[in-house]
Design a protein around this nucleic acid. Structure first.
Lengths: 174, 174
DNA sequence: GTCTATACCGAGATAGAC
DNA sequence: GTCTATCTCGGTATAGAC
């Protein structure tokens, strides 16, 4: 799915790559059911990872690092592309996204309150969306070899995080 | 392509929908060549539209409106998804993106200079990327029925634009 | 030069073998 | 209960008809 795109995923190839008999349609009624199961497994792990990160000493910095970590990003992009045209998968991802977003807001609302920052864009909702949007854009462009403005916007985002959460601590201190 | 995704586009269906004989492979050697031709046509029109918008009275506001206009957005998303797995298309899009980006920076660098704004994130590169990233994220989420934080981040972005370019003029004044 | 017929492949799904 | 064989469909690409 990551290497060739969702369209290249087929029951036959899965069975073949896994060295298993092609009984996919015995275990999954349709391919969508298989994709949904795959998505849920990844989402469960990612959510655990997110909660771990959001409970660290500098949740905003850690969240930003997590967003920029491409290890799940490519797969997520494929699911979004797939969901654009499959209703069942779209609603699955939408509900999952709300869960992730709620977790982010729950953790970061506390951070905002604690730090009592007076940044002009201070709502947790705006900050979370800004980080999410910028990170996704940067990683997408990276895949195309584009980098115009990347350092500038990264600098801006990290300045925002610093205003809210303070200077980034070194790994040993975090 | 927009309705069912790039994977649903085939030479047979194109000929069928157009009511033409299926001679696609006489005119295009491979499907990639066809996709690239399609992309170029759209890009040419979009670039003209961008230049028109960037030469209006309030280029930043007009640019922001253009980004949020979904009329080409869905198709672009499909091309990006397609490009993730096809080298020829990826380099085509990358080069096109650089052209768009250069046009944006050329126009907006002037705006920044003219307005002499002292915004902390003032580099044109950062602003252009911020607007691009946020608009793409918002429109993608819209398609999934997600709206948490949308009004907040929109408010933030529009506040930035206002600081740089002033209050938005009404249509009659622009 | 333009298009048709077809080769060849592999997809999802299902009937039914064991 | 598990898997295999096969049905039907539609894909890209090409050989060759006209």
């Amino acid at each position: 799915m990551i290497e060739e795109g969702y369209a290249a995923v087929s029951s036959r190839r899965i069975a073949s790559k896994a060295g298993l008999p092609n009984a996919i349609h015995y275990y999954f009624e349709t391919m969508d059911d298989l994709f949904i199961e795959l998505f849920r497994r990844g989402a469960t792990r990612s959510l655990a990872r997110q909660e771990e990160v959001l409970s660290s000493r500098q949740p905003l910095w850690a969240f930003w690092d997590l967003l920029l970590d491409r290890s799940n990003g490519n797969l997520n992009m494929e699911f979004i592309a797939l969901a654009n045209h499959r209703k069942a998968i779209r609603s699955e991802i939408a509900e999952s996204s709300r869960t992730f977003r709620r977790g982010q807001l729950k953790a970061l609302a506390d951070v905002i309150e604690t730090s009592r920052s007076s940044t002009p864009f201070g709502s947790p909702e705006a900050i979370v969306l800004l980080l999410s949007a910028v990170s996704r854009f940067l990683t997408t462009e990276d895949a195309f070899g584009l980098d115009i403005g990347h350092s500038e916007v990264t600098g801006f985002v990290e300045q925002c995080i610093t205003e809210i959460e303070g200077e980034r601590l070194r790994a040993a201190e975090a």
